[in-house]
Amino acid sequence: MFERFTVPARQAVITAQQDARERRQTHIRTENVLIALYESPTSPGAQLLRDAGVERADVEADIVRMHRGDAPDPEALATIGIDLDEVRRQVEVAFGPGALERTRAARGKGAGKHVPFDRPAKKSLELSLREALRLDRSYIGSEHILLGLLHAETGAAHHILASRGVTLAGMRAAVEEFGRGAASG
């Protein structure tokens, strides 16, 4: 399937993997693929996203917000009567400054390992193929990856885009329009 990917589409998959690793995730998720589409700024996927009013910074902000649960959240712990600062203070008395933050658990479990696609991300790539076929294309471009992400309803990318008013139907129309006006990729 990957041999049919255009250069920007291929780049998006590679960048998504790097992005997941940098965020210390155990899997590549749809949001990593989404933000990776901006890596090739002139690609149809990136242009369509910007045309829809979704900038890279918006996606980044949403991802950071979603991942906040990976480190202990002092406000969340305060609601059940746990003072994270006090816990940290006690731990540092015994184990030294930054001891809590240095643990593998706090840094994330995926550090340094091979990062596979999670189920929705895999599904979204399969759906990008279907979207390309639907439009009678012999290649899979960044615009088809974008449509695949909108298809994969269990993925966070779908959620990020839907919350910004981007729908599968609307983007399909935009992709067809785009295809009439410019070369694909």
Binding site: P72, D73, A76, L84, T103
Partner: peptide, 9 residues
């Protein structure tokens, strides 16, 4: 979720 991360650490 936060408690679980704290526990793991």
């Amino acid at each position: 979720a936060s408690l679980r991360t704290l526990l793991e650490s």
